[in-house]
Design a protein around this nucleic acid. Structure first.
Length: 264
DNA sequence: TTGGGATGTCGAT
DNA sequence: TCGACCTCCCAAT
């Protein structure tokens, strides 16, 4: 269930709860058993992210996690027995973090991490991200903008929800080819990505409607948010803006929700 | 109790 | 373009 904002929150959560003390590291499910044994008893020194990739940093090693479609971490009291599906448990004696269902859970080194990041596009959650790199890839592509926004080598961290919401906010027709996108349109979409992801990371919930007209700085002034989106998941309802019936299409096997009038 | 679907990605056709 | 991966949740039965 994770797009880039959720991964950022999980990194922050692990820094807050699990750094600074030796951890008991196990793999109740067994599929990470040898790796867990290799780092058992070490301290976590930090956690970083790029797009949907999470890196848990230990002395001398990094645990690379990609949650895929249904992976997740859940926090428990240390005394709670882990479910048999738990790939990785980090336990500081007080709390345990249980990872289940990841696509990737692997022990890597810093060179591996650099390679992984080099394959990814700029991450809108990073203040140092360079949108020009994404723009250059989009400008020379014949793929549709709907495909390109989901391509992690173009922009890292956007998933199916944010794709729909970014396209809607930018009033962008989803099937326009990358090479036909204007720089202004790209800038609108990039800024929306920055604002939406940053708000999602801050509040832990997706409310694109509340934050769409805000600057990144203004996001930090909001109180708690409830989930609210322009078009995602809303096929067959009336567009929030123009009241036209919204549509759902399939793009590269994923459902794309959009308004045929606002996004024409 | 069952089964369909999900905020993802890869590899085989 | 489709199925596999692998787990959880919730609506329908």
């Amino acid at each position: 269930m994770p797009e880039g904002h959720s991964i950022r929150r999980l990194a922050d959560l692990h820094v807050a709860h699990f750094t600074g003390a030796p951890l008991k590291i196990t793999s109740p499910q067994g599929r990470f058993e040898n790796e867990a044994a290799a780092i058992n008893g070490r301290e976590m020194t930090g956690a970083s992210t790029h797009g949907k990739h999470l890196f848990l940093h230990f002395e001398g090693s990094i645990v690379h996690v990609h949650l895929g479609l249904y992976g997740w971490f859940r926090l428990y009291d240390s005394a709670t027995d882990a479910k048999t599906s738990v790939r990785l448990r980090l336990d500081n004696g007080l709390r345990a973090s249980d990872l289940s269902g990841p696509t990737v859970c692997k022990l890597i080194d810093s060179d591996d991490m650099i390679e992984i990041i080099e394959r990814l596009g700029p991450d809108p959650l990073h203040s140092s991200a360079m949108p020009d790199i994404a723009w250059a890839k989009i400008k020379k592509s014949k793929k549709t903008i709907a495909e390109l926004l989901m391509d992690q080598s173009v922009i890292a961290g956007i998933g199916n929800i944010y794709r729909a919401e970014i396209l809607f906010f930018a009033k962008q027709y989803p099937y326009t080819k990358g090479c036909d996108i204007s720089r202004d349109a790209f800038d609108t979409m990039w800024t929306a990505a920055v604002v939406f992801l940053r708000a999602g990371a801050r509040y832990g919930t997706v409310n694109t409607v509340a934050v769409s007209d805000m600057t990144p700085g203004e996001i930090d002034t909001l109180g708690p948010q409830t989930q609210m989106m322009y078009v995602y998941g809303q096929a067959g309802t009336y567009c929030r803006i123009c009241k036209t019936t919204t549509l759902v299409s399939t793009v590269a096997g994923r459902k794309l929700y959009w308004c045929p009038r606002c996004q024409s």
